[in-house]
Structure formats: structure tokens, C-alpha cells
Amino acid sequence: MQQSGRPLVRLHGVGKRFGNGVVALQGLDLDIREHEFLSLLGPSGCGKSTALRLIAGLGEATSGAIDWAVEHGNRDIGFVFQEPTLMPWATVFDNVYLPLRLQGVARGAAAADVDATLAMVGLSQFRDAYPRELSGGMKMRVSIARALVTRPKLLLMDEPFAALDEITRFKLNNDLVELWRTQSWTVVFVTHSVYESVYLSSRIVVMAPRPGRIVAEHDVVTPYPRGDAFRTSEPYNAHCRDVSKSLAAAMQEEPA
């Protein structure tokens, strides 16, 4: 396990009020630490996706501030949406090449990086396929490869596996954790699944809705690699129980 270290991004009292008056987030204080696998867990409407988009710089916070501890540019954030969000007219290679193309990197110069990233997610032999020829899980792998091709410092994932079947999700969970362990990036992972968050994360932040805010925090201390055995172990169950309790408490403050 890599040591979670100093803060990479700090959120101070971040709030977001939409044009229609809905307060999606209120007074969010959160440090995203270097090399950690942080999950934002909460029911729908708790603002976790909004928080993720603000961190990505998609939209402005209406109050508070988001500060980076290090220099960062367009290449330093990778974003994975809930849907694969691929360009259907482009091959797997071209989809993954996109972020580099937008940075002005020539195709030839980018090819090595793109191919290496495709190899990382296990899609080398599909580089010339079109998205519609791929399964749901493979599309998601392309989406992850696209987010990783710039070697970002921060990988933001918005419920990326929610639409996948359980078997595919477990496989992608394992592969994602393996990749994260061997690379140097930090992950912020949005999910509404207690089990997924416990399995993946080194830290879990539980959020509650209306207005979206943080209500609890859990460190998942079990060392990596965790493996499938962890899914049935006693510490895993204990963590799930604790996190579920926080979530239930958050939900009880108002009728669902």
C-alpha cells in the first residue's frame, strides 16, 4: 500500500447552489490526500457528483474555495463518467488518444503512450475496434484508459461501474485497485454502494442530502492487496457494518 500523504487538493467550505435555488452542496471541508483512494459515498441527491465535477473544474463553486497544493494543468485530471461516454465514430485507439490530441500531441508521438495505456487495461488487441463492438465492461475500460493516458495526478470517477453486472464490476474493481497500487495517482471515487466503497477505498467520506454535506468519515485500514478473500472476511464485514450505520444515520435525519 502506498502511503497517503500530504493534501493534494483542499476544499474549504465549498458550496454549490444551482440556478433553480437547489442547494446541492453546503460547507464542504475536505482534504484529498496524495496517493489515497478516497470514496464519496451517499444516497442520490447528496451532491457527491456535484462535488466531483467542481473538483474537476467543471463549473464554479458558489461559495468556498478549492485549492491545489501542487501545480496542475489540463493533463493532471482524469475523469471517468457513469457512462463510458466514448465517441462512437472513433476507434478504441482514437478514443484513448483524444486527451493527447487535444493537447496538440501528434498521433505518431502519442502512439506509444496510447498503446501502453491500452495494455494496462488489457485492451491491446481491441485498439482498432469501434465502441459498439465492445461489451459494457470493455467500454468502461476504454473510458478508464482515456482518463489515464495523460498520466494524471488525480483520477475522478463518477459511479463508473454502477451500470455493470456484478461479475464484471468485481473484475474491474480488482483491476482498478491493482492499477492504482502500481501507479502514482490519487483517486476520488463516487459511489452509492457501501460494499464497493469498503472494498476499494483507503478512506470513505459519507455524505447526506439536502443540502449535500459530509456527515462521517471512515478509514479502511486493511492493507492492499486485498483480493477476493477480503470480500468475505470479518474485517470487511465490520467495515461494511460501520459505514452502513453512518449512512443510515445520515438518512434518518429526514424522511427518504
Binding site: 474537476a56 473544474g57 467543471l58 465517441m87 495523460t150
Partner: peptide
Amino acid sequence: ADHNLVNLFQLYGATRWQILRYLRIPSAM
């Protein structure tokens, strides 16, 4: 054009011309 893809282009600092050429025009085909 897919709204999330537009966001993705913005995330990578795409210019108006890049969004038109690589995203909007293929979407419109």
C-alpha cells in the same frame, strides 16, 4: 453532441475549434 463529452473536451482545455472539429461535426454527420 453528448453533453458529458463536451465536458470532457472542456476538462482537457479544448478550443472551440477542436470541439467543433472532433466532436460536434462527427456528431452531426
